[in-house]
Design a protein around this nucleic acid. Sequence first.
DNA 1: CTATCGTTCGACACCCTGTTGACAGTCTCG
DNA 2: CGAGACTGTCAACAGGGTGTCGAACGATAG
Lengths: 233, 233
Amino acid sequence: MPADPSPDVSAPAVAAPDPAPAAPAEPGRGRRTPRPSGDDRERAILATAEQLLTRRPYADVSVDELARGAGISRPTFYFYFPSKEAVLLALLDAVVAEARLRRDTALRHPAPDREGRWRQVIASVQEPFRSHRAVTLAAAEARASSPAVRDVWSAHMERFVEEAAAEIDAERARGAAPAGLPSRDLATALNWMNERVLHTTFAGHGPAVAEADVVDVLLGVWLRAIYGEPHPR
Amino acid sequence: MPADPSPDVSAPAVAAPDPAPAAPAEPGRGRRTPRPSGDDRERAILATAEQLLTRRPYADVSVDELARGAGISRPTFYFYFPSKEAVLLALLDAVVAEARLRRDTALRHPAPDREGRWRQVIASVQEPFRSHRAVTLAAAEARASSPAVRDVWSAHMERFVEEAAAEIDAERARGAAPAGLPSRDLATALNWMNERVLHTTFAGHGPAVAEADVVDVLLGVWLRAIYGEPHPR
DNA sequence: CTATCGTTCGACACCCTGTTGACAGTCTCG
DNA sequence: CGAGACTGTCAACAGGGTGTCGAACGATAG
């Protein structure tokens, strides 16, 4: 059994978020002390978690496995994280932050045509979900029993819904899109559709859209729901 | 502590599905013996489970609570069900059966106008989900870690997707709907949208559509996605 | 050399699951 | 009516998971 604290993981979600700011102390969740000494251990736990989550569901991963994967004992794990849930939260925060970054970049460099702009909207949700599917699937699973995970996820969705609703309103105001359902309701339905369809595509359970087609399918529904005239015949 | 085996529950999902057929033996999941003697106990367990699930998530309900709620000890619980999962499965089967029944009834009595027909499609999914929201929410939660729950759910969705795809093809064939996305992909996306939007509406977490509006919103998206002309301007 | 502090883990208490074996009713048949 | 079979019941156990406590270890400062 190798005690090497850095297992080979292709692309962990941790990705050194804040090198400069060095948040003084976050007494809520996270490790107990912000000293930089055990940082490698913390990263090893996160990397181990993301790796294990690609193999089995969140509920089937034990704290002991997380600890052993990071080369430490179970009690030592609790020195770095207060629970298994906190590890998932840390992973999820990183993925959400990446999604936000990608989204903001897209907003600053909008595509020239409207189809391209909506494709950016959809792709910015899809990309981080796809590259860290294990974390996202685990978060979806834990959402039901963990209020903290649920809140992070809800806040994330809330921003996407607001942005999409604003975009729909803008298109209607400039006459590009016809009136129809309240923009907020429409944006809510479309965003949840994306979430669920992407989930099934990546999880592969139940009827699903092929991974290569999924953005085109979602985009097709968005365009018709936003721009389609109600009743052609 | 009352030993009364029938706790007061408003409308349990059990609903005595087959009084006459009396299936000889289902050796897979379910209770070990089909004799009618302990039937009340079995129903009491199911009723207790549905009642408890309205108060807390599936993961937080223990076998011991289920047993005590039904007026029996924990080992006795295992005489009736092999696990907590089997209880949820039995509850879910009843809800799914009810949804199927409602759907088949709608198919035999189609509304005269196309909007009414699509409303039937959406409402037949929504109604059982709504009247047994605790079971459905629990099933959604357990789906991630229970292959059996996942399979039941997937099969259920698969049928709805197939039926919706066939209906879309029929509308296109008779010239009522324009060509567009592959009908199967479109039906998949729309059905998952319904599932997720209904889930958030009933669970009340994250951005959601008001319960009174949800069928209208979903119907609006379906109609535009199916009948809307791609680009009006 | 010693005091301190960050870090580590053996051992513990507790909760939950699923199984075993003994036992109590009841029903049937000789 | 009494032996046997079968349903239903539970105390007790084994096993595995979580989270905590306190002793101990090593580096570093005084």
